[in-house]
Design a protein around this nucleic acid. Structure first.
Length: 213
DNA sequence: CACCAGGCAAGTA
DNA sequence: TACTTGCATGGT
């Protein structure tokens, strides 16, 4: 499995090259984006982030001050704007209480402990927590998402109804705990899914996973 | 028109 | 525990 996972990674990297994740100007922007992208296309998230930038709200202090209603209005293009505004506020309250609003302070903590903390915030589940840990805090934590599940179940590398942590440990048990590797691997799986493994698209022509090294 | 997108929590039985 | 439903915009 160790070899297989690395082999898949090498094929994806060879085909698609570095993906440059996470596209953002700061760790704070990554964390907010992680909440905004819950079950939402990245294109819509970009519109919401653009609105936040235009209003100079993409810093902890500014966003901590703004009303939840005003925040909801600005992130409207990302969908679920009321509940996401609440979730962002929950995250900011946690960050204020535990780390005085500083992701930099937070980043010195132990990944397993930080994960527990993030999961205790209402609105932050496994994928959002792991996205923040990997892409904002640079911790070697593998991010699983709907794409990862779809690709691995369609290729019979995992069962159809595989559990989040089951699939996550598959990666983390068989790969070195390399933050850069996890970063690129997850990004490449998203790229693969978008190009070759859409939900409604059953075929998988020219899919790099099937190719030789 | 239906279906999907870088999920999560709350309600029901 | 195991389903089901609400949340909502914008693209195909």
């Amino acid at each position: 499995m160790n070899k297989k996972l690395l082999s898949i990674y090498n094929r994806l990297y060879k085909r698609f090259g570095p993906q440059g994740w996470w596209p953002a100007d700061s760790a704070f922007e990554v964390a907010i984006g992680a909440i905004l992208t819950q079950n939402t296309s990245w294109k819509n998230v970009e519109r919401a982030i653009c609105n936040l930038k235009k209003n100079r709200l993409l810093t902890f202090e500014k966003m901590y001050r703004v009303n939840r209603g005003d925040l909801a209005h600005l992130i409207r293009p990302a969908g679920y704007f009321n509940i996401k505004a609440k979730r962002i506020k929950n995250f900011l309250s946690f960050l204020k209480c535990s780390y005085n609003g500083s992701l930099k302070k937070m980043s010195s903590g132990d990944p397993a402990y930080l994960r527990q903390e993030l999961l205790s915030v209402n609105g932050i589940g496994p994928e959002t927590a792991d996205s923040i840990l990997l892409y904002a805090l640079r911790k070697p934590v593998f991010v699983v998402d709907a794409y990862t599940k779809r690709i691995f179940s369609r290729h019979k590398l995992a069962k159809e109804d595989v559990d989040y942590h089951e699939l996550q440990s598959l990666f983390m048990m068989h790969l070195p705990p390399d933050e850069q590797l996890f970063n690129e691997y997850h990004a490449l799986l998203v790229k693969l899914a978008k190009d070759y493994c859409r939900k409604s698209k059953k075929e998988c022509l020219r899919c790099p996973i099937h190719e030789k090294d």
